[in-house]
């Protein structure tokens, strides 16, 4: 099944305009599915609901762009550097917050993302501030991650999604993954049977933060231009990433992919239908749909996953709810 899905994704662009709108939307779906998948490592396996993943995403976007502007360094190196910084930031924020659960953890991570946004807006020398920053033009080519059309990003994002999903599935099947899931089911019980819960939560956060930062580089290269609110924002990034993983089925490999298809296309439809209207309308609709989904299925936000359950899903501990 996954092979068929990947094959389909490889063939689809052949029937579409390589620079067209559809390609761009699907490329975005892949990127956000990959982000949801990296969130899933902490949020899904350990049930630590982070609302601050934009912090890592923004670190990645700014690190590679800054290195490209100042040193002409290839974004591939920028991506690695961003990954290291993102992982370091995740470790730093995890140390004081890993003991927190539920609302408390969500609150702490949201504050972390917001502070990063405020600092990025204030530190104009580094980030360009609210005016934003442009990714400098380089001769097209894979080495500088710079292309004329959107199609190469379609394939790059697809590769990233497959890669991050492989990491997620690999972790979930490993002893490390089972420890994380033990923490989710009952942290005290996990501690009693000898799981170093603090340590594995930090390790998971570092992996998740590093992957999220690396995806930030892809986003920067694909968009040419961004500002602190776009990459560090709570609603456009942090909440969206978490929502994508949750709506599709938290803790499952297929979840973020289905969630991204659902949410990103919903947003695009809202944008197309309501574009030209006053600012804020499509976001308002987005918020209303979010509330409506929770009202109709208060237990279902998590339970929506099994509805879409696919045969390739590995039956793991998370099936027991």
């Amino acid at each position: 099944m996954p092979v068929a899905a990947i094959a389909a994704a490889l063939i689809v662009p052949l029937g579409l305009d390589g620079d067209g709108y559809a390609i761009r939307v699907i490329a975005l779906v892949f990127l956000f599915a990959a982000l949801g998948q990296s969130w899933n490592i902490v949020g899904g396996l350990a049930n630590q609901i982070s609302l601050g993943h934009a912090a890592f995403f923004g670190i990645g976007a700014y690190t590679s762009t800054r290195l490209l502007i100042d040193f002409g360094l290839s974004p591939w190196f920028g991506m690695l550097a961003g990954g290291v910084l993102g992982g370091a930031a995740a470790a730093l924020i995890s140390l004081p917050t890993m003991r927190l659960r539920g609302h408390y953890f969500a609150l702490a991570t949201l504050a972390f993302g917001e502070v990063m946004r405020v600092v990025a807006n204030a530190w104009t020398g580094l980030t360009g501030g609210p005016v934003g920053i442009s990714v400098p033009y380089s001769a097209p080519g894979l080495w500088m991650l710079s292309f004329k059309g959107t199609l190469p990003f379609y394939y790059l994002n697809l590769t990233a999604l497959v890669g991050v999903t492989a990491v997620f599935v690999g972790i979930r099947r490993s002893a490390f993954g089972y420890r994380l899931q033990a923490v989710r089911e009952d942290a005290n019980a996990a501690e009693v049977v000898g799981v170093d819960t603090a340590r594995i939560k930090i390790q998971a956060a570092v992996i998740s933060g590093a992957l999220t930062a690396m995806l930030g580089t892809l986003y920067a290269q694909m968009n040419f231009f961004f500002d602190p609110d776009a990459v560090f924002g709570a609603a456009p990034i942090s909440v969206r990433i978490a929502l994508i993983a949750i709506v599709g089925g938290i803790g499952t490999a297929a979840g973020p992919i289905l969630g991204a298809i659902l949410i990103v296309s919903l947003e695009e439809i809202a944008n197309v239908l309501l574009s030209g209207q006053v600012a804020g309308l499509s976001n308002l609709v987005y918020g209303l749909i979010l509330i409506a989904v929770i009202m109709i299925q208060p237990h279902g936000l998590v339970a929506l996953g099994p509805v879409f359950r696919r045969p390739w899903r590995v039956p793991a501990v998370d099936a027991a709810k």
């Binding site: 539920g102 309308l281 929770i294 237990h299 998590v302």
Partner: peptide, 23 residues
């Protein structure tokens, strides 16, 4: 409901109020 639903309800409320005010 699960905590996730509680968190996302008020987050949804945040998005709605902020954008309603903008409109």
């Amino acid at each position: 409901a699960p905590e996730v639903a509680q968190i996302f309800l008020t987050v949804g409320l945040l998005i709605v109020l902020e954008n309603a005010a903008l409109l």
